[in-house]
Design a protein around this nucleic acid. Structure first.
Length: 696
RNA sequence: GGCGCGGUAGCUCAGGUGGUUAGAGCGUUGGAUUCAUAACCCAAAGGUCGGGGGUUCAACUCCCCCCCGCGCUACCA
């Protein structure tokens, strides 16, 4: 394995359209922070980079919804996230944002560098432009008359009636479905990144080169993508919010958010290290690590590396330890349903208990598969692991030392094995020492491999071994007969406590500080980091050193506290505060009664229902419409089973042009209500009517 | 439907290249103990290793089929 001189660690740039929840934390930021703390303790040269991702359509839509400017919108969430990270103790070297001037420059320069080599594909096409809204219209936001069959409601990409695929420009009398106005044709040019040209290189670099050192979920996902064949991706958009395309002919266009966002890592590094940022991005002795969630794998493993490769000079990620997702109480975390534990709310509800959340999230870290956070687990981990094992061990050693030695580190001289109980103590000491060193080694090796769950477990193991050592040697019994032995036992127990203070720092930084405070070790801890390089116990405390007061490290979580949290999940938020996405769709353009009467809406009865072969969404029905019995396909397989549909009355558009799907012609469209979560429900008359009943 | 990743004790998870009684932590039960937040220590019970075939002297570990979870993807008019 290659030896690197320094490491650049990035954590996914969170999108600035909502607050952070524990899923974000467990997925990327906590493992990244743990890893970075470990590297720092080891004394490595490292930068830890993050920031808010602030561009893209979703931001402009969110801003519109809140009735503020995009800038004001991202300011709000950027500040919220930045504060939450800070309060939680994620130790970024910099938390920047993609609206920074330095990022504009960097992203534009990056674009230019690739552009100047003639790598981008350019494609100019006339596209419809809505002058009232000031936007270019995507194909399906345009309707008009089909040139082939005269259907007046053909879409920009396809005519429903005759089934031919169209381009918007073929439509006669096009209309914008956004404003209802007639759009004008304007030429627009876009730039494409030829991902396909990097296919063979990606195969070599990932499929062959990282077969063994990348996580299986990451590797599999990449391989799947590469094997499916890559295509050029457009990297510019006609949008007002974003980074302007740095070309004369790119006026009014911006870089696609996915293009500019990862460059944000580089910009933030520049901001942090204006003079030698290149060291962290363009030196082959630097190791680049991206911490992300699984939704970001393709971007960080395939697209961004290809961009870096195209730009030249840049190093490529050495590893991308992506996590899977975190569920909450058995269900997916959902922003719109407010089924989430928000980081800033946790910090308010559990002040001074950051390590408790860190510990729980690391112990269930979704490293190999989706994981589930439950408040009961949280309580159990805090009470029976942190408190009972770690907190208790440190406390009993402290208390014993105060009791027998007035809080001074006792002498650790050789204990002559002159009698049976002393021989036993020596034996137990030897066993503990071997076990402890084995755990330290395993912990460090797990940290090196991004196996944080295991690493943290080994850290706790130090406490378990410590507890066992005390139980095996029973210094409280020996106090009456052999203080020399007690002295040796407690001296060693304190050594273990000191090493725990060191070992727990990547996982439980506050606890590390608390233990150090109790040990009163400020000033004598200069050599402590040798622990990480030697990967074995060090001797942290000199003889006669005066300890601080014993205090409990953790307080148990009571049932009421978690009940409160569970109840909180059950209620949707009363006040609109954390619901960026669930808004109601805007009203469509006004139509006339004539438009409406063109529709022939009927009630029909479902006679038969079956699942379509090879389709996840389509169900195939025979419907008695009163007039005829016809075949209708509908994409509701995720919401209804065929069995429960038979016999039901449904509303359908009976005069919709037939349309072929997966080889079968559908003669009509069943009407469904769709709620904010995308759940579909049937529209039915509230009492049975005869098949063929009209709707008006 | 295609592709990818998972499905191991009540819970969270380990189990290179197949080989004696499948492991750990938490939980449960019993015991011991009192320095400690009834904590700690010891012990026990708990698993047809998603299901079914196959290869093999031998499979949790290899092959095939199926089921379930998650993700990407096609089909949602």
């Amino acid at each position: 394995m290659k030896k690197f001189k320094r490491t650049t660690v990035t954590a996914a740039l969170p999108y600035a359209n909502g607050p952070l929840h524990i899923g974000h934390v467990a997925g990327a930021y906590l493992p990244a922070d743990t890893y970075v703390r470990y590297l720092r303790l080891r004394g490595d040269d490292i930068v830890f980079i993050c920031g808010s991702d602030e561009h893209g359509v979703a931001i402009t839509l969110g801003a519109k919804k809140e009735g503020v400017s995009p800038k004001a919108f991202v300011d709000k969430y950027h500040n919220l996230m930045k504060k939450a990270f800070q309060d939680f103790g994620i130790g970024f070297d910099i938390y920047s944002r993609t609206s920074q001037p330095v990022h504009y420059e960097t992203a534009q320069e990056f674009f230019k560098t690739i552009y100047d080599q003639g790598i981008f594909l350019e494609e100019t096409s006339d596209q419809y432009y809505d002058e009232q809204e000031g936007i270019f219209l995507a194909d399906r936001y345009i309707t008009g008359t089909c040139p082939k069959c005269g259907n007046t409601n053909a879409y920009g990409d396809q005519c429903e009636k005759c089934g031919t695929s169209l381009s918007p420009r073929e439509l006669i009398n096009p209309r914008s479905t956004v404003s209802g106005n007639t759009p004008v044709l304007k030429p627009t040019k876009h730039w494409y990144f030829p991902l396909d040209k990097y296919e063979s290189w990606l195969k070599e670099w990932i499929v062959e080169g990282h077969k063994d050192d990348w996580k299986t979920n990451v590797y599999g996902q990449c391989k799947s993508w590469i094997d499916q064949g890559l295509q050029p991706r457009s990297i510019t958009r006609d949008l007002a919010w974003g980074i302007p395309v740095p070309l004369a002919e790119g006026k009014g266009k911006v870089l696609y958010v996915w293009f500019d966002a990862p460059i944000g890592y580089i910009s933030a590094t520049k901001e942090l290290k204006p003079n030698d940022w290149q060291k962290y991005w363009q030196d082959n002795d630097t190791r680049l690590i991206h911490f992300i969630g699984k939704d970001n794998i393709v971007f960080h493993c395939v697209i961004f590396p290809s961009m870096l490769k195209a730009a030249g000079k840049y190093i490529l990620p050495d590893n991308v330890p992506a996590n899977e997702f975190l569920n909450l109480e058995g269900e997916k975390i959902s922003t719109s349903r407010n089924h989430a534990v928000w980081l800033h709310e946790y910090l308010e509800d559990f002040p001074g208990r950051r390590d408790e959340l860190r510990y729980t999230l690391t112990s269930i870290s979704p490293e190999t598969k989706d994981a589930d956070f439950t408040w009961k687990d949280y309580q159990s981990k805090v009470n029976s692991e942190l408190s009972a094992i770690l907190g208790n061990f440190v406390n009993r050693v402290m208390v014993l030392t105060w009791k027998y030695f007035d809080g001074k580190v006792p002498s650790a001289h050789e204990l002559p094995g002159t009698n049976d109980h002393r021989k036993r103590i020596l034996e137990k000491y030897q066993q503990a020492h071997n076990d402890l060193n084995a755990s330290v080694k395993e912990m460090i090796s797990a940290l090196d491999d991004f196996r944080f769950r295991e690493a943290q477990f080994q850290m706790m193991n130090l406490c378990r071994i410590g507890n066992k050592f005390l139980a095996d040697t029973e210094p409280w019994k020996l106090a009456k007969e052999d203080m020399e032995a007690v002295s040796c036992i407690l001296s060693y127990a304190l050594t273990v406590v000191g090493n725990i203070a060191i070992a727990c720092e990547p996982f439980l930084p506050d606890t590390a500080q608390n233990i150090k405070k109790q040990l009163n070790s400020t000033g004598i801890d200069t050599g402590w980091n040798a622990f990480w390089k030697k990967a074995e116990l060090i001797e942290p405390l000199p003889e006669s050193h005066q300890l601080g007061k014993a205090e409990l490290l953790f307080r148990n979580i009571e049932d009421e506290e978690i009940e409160k949290q569970i109840n909180k999940l059950k209620k949707p938020k009363a006040v609109e505060e954390v619901k960026p996405e669930s808004a109601v769709k805007p009203l469509k353009e006004t139509i006339t009664i004539d438009d409406f009467t063109k529709l022939d809406i009927r009630v029909g009865t479902i006679l038969t229902a079956e699942k379509m072969e090879k389709s996840d969404k389509l169900l195939k029905f025979t419907i008695d419409t009163g007039i005829d019995k016809r075949t209708v396909l509908s994409g509701i397989a995720k919401h209804y089973t065929p069995e429960e549909m038979v016999g039901k009355q449904v509303t359908l558009i009976a005069n919709l042009a037939p349309r072929k799907m997966m080889g079968i012609e559908s003669q009509g469209m069943i009407l469904m209500a769709e709620d904010a979560d995308g759940k579909l429900r049937l529209l039915q008359p509230n009492e049975a009517v005869n098949p063929g009943a009209t709707v008006s």
